[in-house]
């Protein structure tokens, strides 16, 4: 239920971002990667089992595929792998505080962008020149880094509403894995 709510909220946020960025022509290329942020959050806060988080990332990726017009499966695969990467990181570093959140958001956006590029190249899909792809990834990374802490704060609030004890609630608001 928690994962489904986060995925639904992330999907709504994706729709809002897509509509908002359309009316902001001066930053039209710097679209925050909400999908990658969500997948990273699901991976970071995955409980004992990994598969629900991976499933959440996969479903959100599928919805993003349909919104963006990408071939179905592209962002599903990328976000599933991003969730897995975040899960691996969860066991090594603690993402807490604004600075780490911003840095980790940028890192997640980079990982996601690189994975998307690799998958596209591996599947022989059309892509722009390397310089343009790099510029796009850089802009997306900056936008994602700025928006990341806010998105995660929202997800933590959602997590807190699903907490069964005060301890779980406090841990969720602090960004600690329960």
């Amino acid at each position: 239920m928690r994962t489904a709510t986060i995925v639904l909220a992330a999907y709504l946020l994706c729709a809002v971002v897509a509509a908002t960025w359309r009316v902001l022509p001066w930053i039209v290329d710097a679209i925050p990667d909400v999908g990658a942020l969500t997948a990273a959050y699901l991976g970071l806060t995955a409980r004992r089992q990994v598969s629900p988080a991976i499933g959440g990332g996969l479903v959100l990726g599928y919805l993003i595929d349909l919104i963006s017009g990408a071939p179905p499966g592209l962002f599903s695969l990328v976000l599933a792998l991003t969730t897995l990467a975040a899960r691996a990181i969860q066991q090594r570093i603690l993402v807490r505080g604004a600075a780490i959140s911003i840095a980790f958001s940028a890192f997640v956006a980079l990982i996601s962008g690189a994975l998307a590029l690799i998958v596209r190249v591996a599947c022989r899909m059309e892509s722009a020149t390397f310089a343009i792809e790099l510029s796009h990834v850089a802009q997306v990374t900056i936008a994602t880094a700025i928006l990341g802490p806010l998105v995660w704060r929202m997800f933590r609030r959602i997590d807190a509403t699903f907490a069964r004890t005060h301890r779980e609630r406090d841990a969720a608001l602090e960004g600690l894995a329960p």
Partner: peptide, 27 residues
């Protein structure tokens, strides 16, 4: 079971992507 399911969930979009690229039209 959890890691098997995880592997399946990673493999599934890869197969879907391959099929959608081969088909070219939405299902």
């Amino acid at each position: 079971v959890d890691w098997s399911l995880t592997g399946f969930l990673i493999l599934l979009p890869a197969l879907v992507l391959r099929a959608s690229l081969a088909r070219g039209t939405p299902t």
